[in-house]
Each structure stands twice: as C-alpha cells, then as structure tokens.
Design a protein around this nucleic acid. Structure first.
Lengths: 183, 183
DNA sequence: CGCACGTGAGACAGCGATGTCTCATTCAGG
DNA sequence: CCTGAATGAGACATCGCTGTCTCACGTGCG
C-alpha cells in the first residue's frame, strides 16, 4: 500500500500555503498519514520543501509548454499561461514567499529557466510593439508572480471568487487600472 | 543610554524581510544590541512582530494622510500614495507575508481601515470614469500591496534599481503591460 | 567620589519540533 | 494459511530557540 506521494505533496502545499510554519505533524495529519510515514517519504522538513519546490517547477514548466508561448499574440500567450498555471497558483504563492529557498544562494536553476522563458515572452511582445517598453521583462515577470500570489491569497481568504482569478490577473497585468477609450 | 527603539524596529524589519525565520539573537545582533536588551524592549518574539505591525500601520496611515487622496485625479493620488509609502515598502512586504498575524483571526483593525481608504480611492477613480470598473477596488488594493512587495523584493535582491521602484509599481498598476496608441 | 541605571554577556531551565527507533497491526500475494 | 512489506502509534533522545535570571561593566548624574 504505497503512499500516494503526489497526494501528500499537494496536501502539504495546501496546508503550508495557509500556514507556512505548520509542523511535520500537522502536514502528516493534513495528508491523512502518520508522522512516521511522512518521514519515510521525506527525510525531513527541508526535503519536503525541496520536493514541493520541484513540484512547483515541474508544474510551471508543464504550464509553459502547454501555453505554447511562441504562437499568436503575446497577449494571448499571457492569457493562456495564466490559465495553465492557475491550478498551481497556491503552491507557487507558498514557494514565492519561502525565501529560505533563496537563502543558501543555491537557487534551483529551474526557476531561472522559467523566469527566462516568461521574460522572453514579454520581450517578444515588446519587440512586436504589443507591450510597452518602459517596463523591463524581468519586472513584468516578477509582477506576474506577485499578482498570482496576491490573487491566490485573495481567493483562499474568501475575499475573491476563484472564477475571477484569471480575469483579475490578466486584466490588471495587461491593461492596468486605467480605463481605455477604445478597447 | 536608552536603546533607540525605532532603530531596533527598523533593523528587525530589514532583517526579517530577508529572513522571516530569523531568531531573536539574529535580530538583536542586526540591531547591534544584546539579546537581553532586545527582550527588555519587547517581551518576546510575538511582541516584536506586533510592534512591527503597529509601525507598519502607522507608516501606512501617515502615507495615506500625506498623499491627500481626495484631491486631484485618482491617478495622481495613486502616484502620490506609492511615493509616500515607498520608504515603508520593505516593512510592508514582510508584514504582507506574515500571515501568522492573520491566523488568530484577530486582524488588527488598522489594516481594514487602510484597505478601506485605498479601496475608496480606487472607487472614486471608477465613479469618475478614470479607472475601469471590471476590477474591484478590493482587488486593486490587494494588487497594489502585492506589487509593492514584489518591487521591494526585486530591489532588495538587486534585480531592480531603487530609483525605478515608483515607476515600476505605478506604471504597471495604472497602465498595464499593453502599449497604448495615445499617451 | 559614590550612586543608580541601563547594558552586555553568559548561564539556566523549559518547551516545542525534529529525527530515529521499536512494536503491533494490517493488507496483499504466494 | 503464511509471509513479508508497509503503515500507525508511540517512546525516546536531541537540538535549537525562547524566556528569565544573575552578575559585571560602563556611563551619566548628583
């Protein structure tokens, strides 16, 4: 009766997103297993967080692949990307604030690869005259993650509806708050 | 030789923003005082975080007052607000992720008051036809905090210049990534 | 000078979380 | 039925942080 490792990771992600300081015991209970079994799967808390990081990276890469960023307008590519990455938003929101990963200056190269792909999308939009050029691709990438984290927290706290998540992120990221005459 | 309480708080904010799990000993060393003195000033870690929260609220309120949100266009009011709140961005970024404050469901009423004032600004911009109405004031408020946190982290990590902070936040929040024909 | 106050340094116990262990139980497969 | 693998439950030692204490030192002040 092998433990469903993926289920454990997702339960941990859901719990840690709400309470980043949850103990191993709480994580185990949330996954419906004992602390002993949790330790058999993940050598320690650090290993668990690393596994969550790997899961988050994998989901990001999968979303990037699925979004097909090189085709069509950059705006549509952003919309597809947010749509594809939405299920992982909670996990990413947790990882986004877990700067402990960032501490040991041994950043997982997966993140930089993801950042590069998203930044390349924004750069493509800029070169095509679609996006403004006074905001750097690096900032737009960072802002995308920040907005997704904000959106995820807003949904989790009940202050926003899950169905509005995509429009909130994309609407603000692409269009901003100012009203447009045309559009 | 009374300890400079404000200096201790700002040192703690700067450290905790980078490393949210810093120990009391690290906080004390960062402030240049001993752990004993730190404990004399703040009864415990919880009291320290609460003091930081009060400081953050106070700085937000001061910024809101200084920004004079009710005068002029809503866009200009947002610009003034971000300008005024910028010095406290690092502290706010820390508090924004310290959802432990949010845990005990005893949210400091100061935050809701601040949220209300900022949301009222966005609502004023919507009623005046300046801001789009398909994004709720609550979301715009949340996004403002999220973008400020992202911007603060970007500056702290060296990936962005402090001089660009204001333009990054305001430019994206108001205008979005899409290029405009006019303007 | 002498006193009082605040500080730094260190010792100390307490606590919670961690990581490892053992043992009984359960379940699948031979 | 028997066996083995995996799990749950709990005991256990350990570690790091916390909170409190004591004591010595230095500085400002009367």
């Amino acid at each position: 009766m092998a433990v469903d490792r993926d289920h454990v990771l997702r339960s941990a992600a859901a719990l840690l997103t709400r309470k980043a300081t949850a103990t191993m015991d709480e994580v185990a209970k949330a996954a419906g297993i004992s602390r002993a079994t949790l330790h058999r799967q993940f050598a320690g808390r650090d290993a668990l967080v690393r596994a969550l990081e790997s899961l988050g990276i994998a989901e990001c890469v999968a979303a990037l692949d699925a979004a097909d960023l090189d085709n069509g307008s950059a705006s549509d590519a952003v919309r597809r990307l947010v749509r594809a990455i939405e299920p992982a938003a909670g996990l990413l929101a947790f990882l986004y604030t877990e700067n402990q990963l960032y501490e040991g200056e041994e950043i997982n190269p997966g993140w930089t690869a993801i950042d590069d792909r998203i930044a390349a999308l924004f750069r493509r939009g800029q070169l095509g005259g679609e996006f403004r050029i006074d905001l750097t691709p690096a900032w737009l990438t960072e802002a995308l993650f920040g907005l997704m984290a904000s959106g995820a927290w807003m949904v989790q706290s009940g202050k926003g509806a899950p169905r509005d998540f995509h429009h909130m992120i994309v609407g603000l990221l692409l269009g901003g708050a100012l009203r447009r005459e045309e559009s």
